[in-house]
Amino acid sequence: MTRLLDITGLRAGYATVPVLHGIDLHLDAGEAIGLFGPNGHGKTTLLHAVSGLLKPTAGCVRFDGQDITGAKPSAIVAAGLVQAQQGNTLFGDMGVQETLELAAFNTRARSGWQTRLEEVQALFPRLAERKRQRARTLSGGERQMLSIGCALMCNPRLLILDEPTLGLSPRLKGELREAIAEIARKGVPLIVVEQDVEFLLALSSRLYLVEQGEIARMINRADAPDHKEIMEMYFGEQAH
């Protein structure tokens, strides 16, 4: 299999506060991987350093053999690495359909955007029902759908989802997870950040535990730990 994403020794942070202390992570073509771990330990920072929103201070990010460390976000999206943000409000005063059309912005996404729009609307029928509604008036779940829909409109070769079900009701969580599994079945390589390890195990071949800015543990699906062990990873031995 070809290596699609290869991150080595990645360090990044905000102003004088380092957050990532050397991350190593990889993903092969056709694979889905999961990231989990406590809040505030660098998961989102890692994603921002990969997508270009944050300039890494050291290390290397290679996408499809090409060095994209510190490249412009627009260039990274044009290469096919696309990220849907956490709890995203997108563009408050823009309509749903308008936003999806705009998201097919990079040159690779322009041809065949109508087909992709139909696919997104089939995946999220709620977005088709709310074509003209402004993004700021959408519910949390609908915003999340729009955010993922936008990322799909970019024609991703690798799609990164940052806690796509954060703060949603159990019913909506289920709906979104079903959609994410559907995206994975279509063969789009995925990196999914989630707190629910069981969901990640069902979806992906490998899991990374991100803790204190480092990969604390890598878990293959084949030797997956049971529920109790996962709880220990989160809370430590003394928790039970």
């Binding site: 997508s51 270009g52 929103l53 412009k72 976000p73 627009s74 999206v77 044009a78 696309v82 990220q83 849907a84 943000q85 995203n88 409000t89 997108l90 563009f91 408050g92 005063d93 823009m94 308008e98 936003t99 059309e101 705009l102 998201a103 912005f105 990079n106 996404a109 936008c150 990322a151 409109m153 970019c154």
Partner: peptide, 21 residues
């Protein structure tokens, strides 16, 4: 024209859908 509005409303999200801010 739409990209102008998108950048004005949320430059971070605009960058993540591939707009050169």
């Amino acid at each position: 024209g739409r990209s102008l509005r998108a950048v004005g409303q949320n430059p971070g999200s605009a960058a993540l859908i591939g707009i050169d801010v």
